[in-house]
Design a protein around this nucleic acid. Sequence first.
DNA 1: CCTTGATCTCAAGTGCACTTGAGAAATGAC
DNA 2: GTCATTTCTCAAGTGCACTTGAGATCAAGG
Lengths: 143, 143
Amino acid sequence: MSGLTIGEIAARTGLAVSAIRFYEEHGIVHPVRNDGGHRRYGRHDIRRLSFVMAAQKLGFPLADIAQHLAHLPVHKAPSKADWTRISKVFRHDIDARIAALERLRDTLDGCIGCGCLSLQACKLYNPDDVKAAEGPGPRNLVG
Amino acid sequence: MSGLTIGEIAARTGLAVSAIRFYEEHGIVHPVRNDGGHRRYGRHDIRRLSFVMAAQKLGFPLADIAQHLAHLPVHKAPSKADWTRISKVFRHDIDARIAALERLRDTLDGCIGCGCLSLQACKLYNPDDVKAAEGPGPRNLVG
DNA sequence: CCTTGATCTCAAGTGCACTTGAGAAATGAC
DNA sequence: GTCATTTCTCAAGTGCACTTGAGATCAAGG
């Protein structure tokens, strides 16, 4: 029970080996080393990395995610309370995100009606409504 | 009625002058030049740029946005049909995004219940559910 | 052993979306 | 006509999130 290799972790999470090493540099995982200097991971690291992937999809920058994870125990499984606390932060953010998208959707519905021909009235142009659409700031949703 | 300067466009959209020039390089706006070689924009360019800002918040990469805008007339206001078509694409994407977030939220609710202590059962870890959360891939939502 | 494949470190490169800087020319109020 | 402000071009730099490459070492099956 010496732990999982980086390759096994990569296979289980779907991440690239290079990405996992990169995450280590940024304090997201903290593998121990075996006699040969190779990284050995615990099962809880899979969950940390899964959390990172989920959080990234939500638009959190890595630094923020690392910040959250810094509150979890490093080498053992976090307690139920630990995860519950973090999950609630997520839950809150997701709710806000959904609300923002719904506002944007309603705004767009208005635009479809008006054809966006009126610059003064256009809700897409209107700063307040653009602000209401605040949310991600993403990268590649359409692939 | 010689058109708006880049500074005026920047003021009206909230974008940096450098960003607007950058967008021109990427085919998003097509200002004309005055005798001195300075860019002159039309009012419709404000709307094009507002569209870009909204689309970026939704996670569209610039190249895709430019692709969409390529279907609008360059130097005059687009027709109602033009905007309606584009708005519908947006509407579709927003609906999908909301659905994905709702799925993720439900998943998280499950995790709060279970405390994410079971690796096998954890929905955040479960590949299918992670896939269900597919969506953005953002940058900076928390600021 | 031997060899094949995984892993190691460290430096450099990539892609996106811009920003910054330098030096020159145009604009616009006085 | 003067002068601060704005704009111009073009090259280079920035930040994030990684990937790629080079050269060396470790691990494990036959």
